[in-house]
Design a protein around this nucleic acid. Structure first.
Lengths: 256, 256
DNA sequence: GAGTGGTCTAGACCACCCT
DNA sequence: GGGTGGTCTAGACCACTCC
């Protein structure tokens, strides 16, 4: 948007033109955050296009996280608030952090990304929970534990962050492996965050190796793209390296 | 999909049922990678639903990166090949890496995420390029340089990776700041990768500080979610930390 | 009950590809 | 020319919210 506007002519299809016009109105403040935009009927009349074309444009804007439609009420401009977190900061405990246990099951790890950690192939204990910040769902966590050692600390995992739970049991994390990727929302994450299918998600797969034999923790943290991003720093790549993750980029919120 | 199938009844709408059925056929091999699936007309007949319902389902599958539709030809199952890269590994130079310069412009940095690096507010030199691996576009790079110092090395930047160009000029990187996030594809990235609007993108914002005064490099690397993911490791979080980024997760390809 | 968004349908035109 | 996907239309039903 900031690049190559190319607003010479309606570049292509009708619904794109409509979408970009609405986007423009959001950018320039014609449509205010948290306020409803005109109904599909009104927009259809204004633009002189059919309803489904309007709806198509709105659907795309929803997929881009710009608006939220509530059936029976209206369509609202989404207020953008994103949290920036340090990657190495595994136990941040922001103020206002709460969590809600969703399920505890026995499952084999099937996710192809997580399999690159070469986890045990047996069924493991799987704890799923939602992490809220200021009563807004920000993270969806799936933690996998070796089934045999987990019984005594499973309660801990359902109320605390993984790293916090480990620390409380005096288990030392010797190594943290992370894989970060993006993915379209599917299944349970859609419900947890109330987002449409295909909505971009930031995923952080983790493997915590510990000094205690047989205890390795695997899992994924997932967040909608507009809620969370993460930062790292690598000081002095040549010569002697120092503490990883010490960042000059502070943890903060910013408008996107 | 691997979680909570809940296939008791058609959970919800028709297009969802159709989508999941097609997804199932892709999973179980009924529809093979790189092979065309039946036309919308045939699918519509088979499922006994209207064409636009089929098209809706296919559009969602496209947004999820499962299929590719080519107008006038057909719809194909996408072969999943993803590259895993280490985060700290800024100059990998894989075999088969080529790049194509797209533009060199003077621009102010406007992206709100990049502004968290607090870059200079003046117009900077902006070099945009596409990075190919095995003739497939994998990365879209936008690099911002201080306009005054860049003239002599701008050619370098258009043919090489940022870090390589710096090394060739004996400029030492003293600090690397990264911000990783996900975002829906918009504008130029859609064209570069041939992906639809809203397609999940993995973004890696970077800031390279150097030992040479006044030279800091800012930029973004963007890749479709199904092409690239990245890994880091943090050994020994307590006590003395050692080399950052030394990873037990190898660089490799895997099927998703 | 009026208004909203979500879904579904039947039918149409176009641009494109392949034969 | 026949097949494909992409777009657009008009019209309909539903579930929901708000008054």
């Amino acid at each position: 948007m900031s690049v190559a506007p190319s607003r010479l002519r309606p570049t292509s299809s009708l619904h794109v033109t409509v979408r970009e016009e609405i986007l423009k109105r959001i950018s320039n403040g014609t449509y205010q955050p948290d306020a409803p935009i005109p109904s599909t009927a009104m927009l259809g009349e204004e633009f002189g296009v059919s309803l489904i074309t309007i709806k198509r444009a709105l659907r795309d804007l929803q997929a881009a996280g710009m608006i939220v439609s509530v059936a029976g009420k209206g369509t609202y401009v989404k207020k953008q608030t994103r949290i920036l977190r340090k990657l190495d900061m595994t136990a941040p405990s922001f103020e206002g952090t709460t969590m809600q246990l969703l399920s505890v099951t026995r499952e084999k790890i099937a996710d192809p990304v997580m399999l690159t950690f070469s986890p045990p192939r047996e069924a493991m204990l799987c704890v799923r929970k939602t992490i809220f910040i200021d009563d807004m769902p920000f993270l969806y966590d799936s933690t996998y534990l070796s089934a045999d050692v987990a019984d005594e600390i499973v309660d801990e995992f359902s109320e605390r962050l993984v790293t916090e739970a480990l620390r409380r049991h005096n288990i030392l994390v010797t190594n943290t492996d992370l894989i970060i990727d993006a993915a379209p929302a599917t299944g349970q994450v859609e419900d947890v965050f109330g987002i449409p299918t295909g909505y971009p998600i930031l995923r952080r797969f983790y493997k915590f190796s510990t000094d205690t034999a047989d205890i390795s923790i695997y899992g994924v943290l997932q967040a909608p793209f507009d809620r969370l991003s993460c930062s790292v720093s690598f000081p002095a790549r040549n010569g002697r390296a120092s503490r990883p993750g010490a960042s000059s980029v502070g943890s903060s919120k910013h408008r996107a």
